[in-house]
Design a protein around this nucleic acid. Structure first.
Length: 675
DNA sequence: CCGCGGAGTGTTTTT
DNA sequence: CACTCCGCGG
């Protein structure tokens, strides 16, 4: 192994890998072999005889943790016992064990974003916050204001000044609401995503739990450190302060999570927090050709905050010049990308070595349609998760009330799906339900009485019998799913016109459920480490074993790389996002996002945009992104107009000149109605 | 009090 | 375009 290390790493990587004790900050430019350094370091520690269970690897996504540990396991199988995960999943695990120290039950439920909004709404109603006489923020906005104040460590009024100046007059009331919401969650044994971090910090900072944890985890590693927020930074510090063995890895130029409170200050302050912190820089780029890096470097150069980085390719290849491609509309663009993908595939670049990246998931919809049309399988990362869709949330809510019969948010959802029961009755019943000591009692005492209208009665009975069979004998999550589905299916058909499409998601949920041993585990994982939206099944006749091409938001593409990258939607309002245009700091983050996107490409980079944009149903002319429309970037790109690049694949119709007009409106209507 | 239909609104990124 | 909010009829 040792010779292996020396031959496979450059001197800086080698130093990072072989520094075992003390604090180390690794500043790693894009493509500089950061993942490789972590992979080898984990393997090296284990080889040295360090117990893998005493190594903790905190990453930003579960995917990243999994990737690094499975790579490390190839060097030494013991590496699979290393603890790895996101801050949130780690917090979940620790809190399950130690929540009682904070006076909380270990069987808390996790509120996802929409649950949290519901909860905020309940608290607001209780405080008579929603006054019809005045304009108040919606529940989602309130939740996000409160969350931002937690994650950025600022007061509600600071957040309002910055993000919602028109609501500043409500500052003290929203502050009150924030407190009410916090109290509500503690009382109901709910934790939202922020609480996981906040409570872990309290546990580590104010109790002796940090002693136990730092005795257990002797070696801490944190990836993507530039994307941690203040709370996460504190957690890392508290975990490591007793022994000082911590390695943080990051790149300040790739900080793209400012919107949820990440702060590049963490990375700057890191060396000051730990004595004798070693700082190692990885600067050589192993990934991309020089002409791709030239674009990346120019993006950095154009920013106000200067980053000292200048990426240099060690591949010694100029490579193909990246191109900028203009299209009339999204369909032309999609058609062109699909034919280019096929071309490259025929040249031997497999589709899973290609990726299409975008700022926001909705940008990719026309492309998804085009890929399906051509039978090319694809997988979408980022954007709306399938667990956030209404039908999946519905089904999960039914499983939640079985897991925790005091989950009032889940009950409310379940009850309002019964015909004849509306929000008011649901509130009243929920109130009764949470006073009961068991689900059986709920079924007998609350759901049985018959003082309701005929229709509601029948449906309540159906619910009661479903709950009885689902809870009366020990059913595993798989069986429970089936029972829940049988109950929910007719409701779903009534609620959604497109229920048949939604069945796909439920099928995915069925498969996931059947893999779990316990319901509590399923629900916990579902909130914290949600599965990605499944591969879209496309009948790929000629290329059956073809791996899907990745379509991903730039955020979700972090840390990954492909031979060929298509970056679409390079217009003002998309990248940079319309949301960021008023604020210099946000604009900077958008341009770091562009930096992250272009540095994902190894060999080929295609930038594109289309001029026909839709906003709120009104079409408008899209302007080229301000980041691209600068002479030093344009000079490095080959530019193609859509006429030159379009091929025979898209529809090419003339305007029908020369065909006799044989219809008037009446005869058209007549023909239409015939069918 | 429920549920339907019409009007209005705002639209990112993730755990 | 999709989701939420509001007002009215049953």
């Amino acid at each position: 192994m040792h010779d292996d290390i020396k031959s496979k790493l450059n001197p800086s990587q080698y130093e990072a890998v072989t520094t075992v004790d003390g604090a180390v900050l690794v500043i790693a430019g894009a493509g500089s072999g950061k993942t490789r350094a972590i992979e080898y370091r984990v393997a090296h520690l284990v080889e040295k005889g360090i117990d893998p269970k005493s190594i903790l690897l905190l990453t930003f996504t579960r995917k990243a943790a999994h990737e690094m540990l499975s790579r490390a396991s190839r060097h030494d199988p013991r590496c699979k016992d290393v603890e790895g995960g996101t801050f949130h999943s780690f917090a979940f695990k620790v809190l399950k064990k130690y929540a009682h120290i904070l006076g909380l039950s270990g069987s808390f439920s996790i509120l996802d974003e929409s649950d949290a909004s519901e909860a905020v709404h309940r608290c607001g109603s209780k405080l008579d916050f929603f006054d019809k006489e005045r304009k108040t923020p919606k529940k989602d906005t309130l939740r996000s204001i409160i969350s931002m104040s937690v994650n950025k460590g600022l007061s509600v009024s600071d957040i309002l000044d910055k993000e919602y100046p028109h609501f500043t007059y409500l500052a003290s009331e929203i502050e009150k609401l924030r407190k009410e919401y916090a109290a509500y969650k503690i009382q109901k044994n709910y934790l939202d995503y922020d609480d996981l971090l906040v409570f872990l910090r309290i546990l580590l900072g104010k109790t002796d739990v940090h002693k136990k944890l730092s005795a257990k985890y002797r070696y801490i590693m944190v990836d993507e450190y530039q994307d941690t927020n203040i709370i996460q930074g504190d957690i890392a510090y508290l975990l490591a302060k007793d022994h000082g063995n911590i390695m943080a890895v990051g790149d300040d130029a790739q900080s793209i999570y400012g919107f949820r409170g990440s702060s590049h200050k963490n990375i700057m302050d890191f060396p000051g927090k730990f004595k004798n912190c070693k700082v190692i820089k990885l600067e050589d780029n192993y990934r991309s050709t020089q002409s791709i890096l030239d674009i990346a470097n120019t993006v950095l150069e154009n920013m106000n905050n200067k980053y000292s980085k200048c990426l240099k390719s060690v591949r010694h290849e100029e490579g193909a010049r990246p191109s900028l491609n203009f299209f009339k509309n999204a369909y032309d663009e999609a058609g062109w990308i699909v034919s280019r993908i096929k071309e490259l595939r025929d040249e031997g670049i497999d589709t899973h070595h290609q990726a299409v990246l975008f700022r926001a998931a909705y940008i990719s919809i026309p492309l998804q349609a085009e890929l399906s049309r051509h039978g090319i399988p694809y997988q979408v990362f980022g954007g709306l998760k399938f667990y956030e869709t209404a039908h999946v949330k519905d089904l999960i809510a039914h499983m939640k009330v079985i897991s925790n019969h005091r989950d009032e948010i889940a009950w409310h959802r379940v009850l309002t799906h019964i015909e004849g029961i509306g929000p008011k009755t649901a509130d009243r019943l929920t109130e009764e339900i949470i006073g009961k000591s068991s689900l059986a009692e709920v079924i007998d005492k609350v759901l049985a009485p018959s003082d309701r209208p005929e229709k509601a009665l029948k449906n309540t009975k159906r619910l009661a019998s479903f709950l009885k069979s689902a809870s009366s004998f020990k059913v595993g999550p798989g069986t429970l799913y089936d029972l829940t589905f049988d109950y929910y299916f007719p409701i779903m058909q009534g609620k959604f016109d497109d229920w048949h499409i939604r069945l796909n998601d439920l099928e995915a949920l069925r498969q996931i459920s059947s893999r779990y041993e316990s319901l509590a585990e399923l629900l916990g994982d579902f909130a914290i480490e949600p599965p990605d939206r499944g591969v879209l099944k496309v009948e790929a006749k000629s290329h059956e074993d073809e791996k899907p091409i990745v379509l991903s938001t730039i955020h979700s593409a972090k840390g990954l790389e492909w031979d060929t990258v298509f970056l679409i939607g390079l217009v003002d309002g998309v990248l940079p996002s319309a949301f960021a245009l008023n604020d210099a700091e946000s604009i900077e983050e958008e341009s770091r996002l562009l930096y992250v996107a272009v540095t994902r490409a190894k060999d080929r980079l295609f930038l594109s945009l289309c001029h026909e944009g839709m906003r709120g149903g009104i079409s408008q002319f899209n302007k080229i992104s301000r980041f691209i429309d600068s002479s030093n970037i344009l000079a490095r790109l080959d530019q193609n107009l859509s006429e030159e690049v379009s091929d025979g694949d898209s529809f090419d119709l003339d305007d029908g000149d020369g065909i006799n007009i044989s219809y008037d409106k009446d005869s058209l209507l007549k023909d239409v109605l015939e069918f």
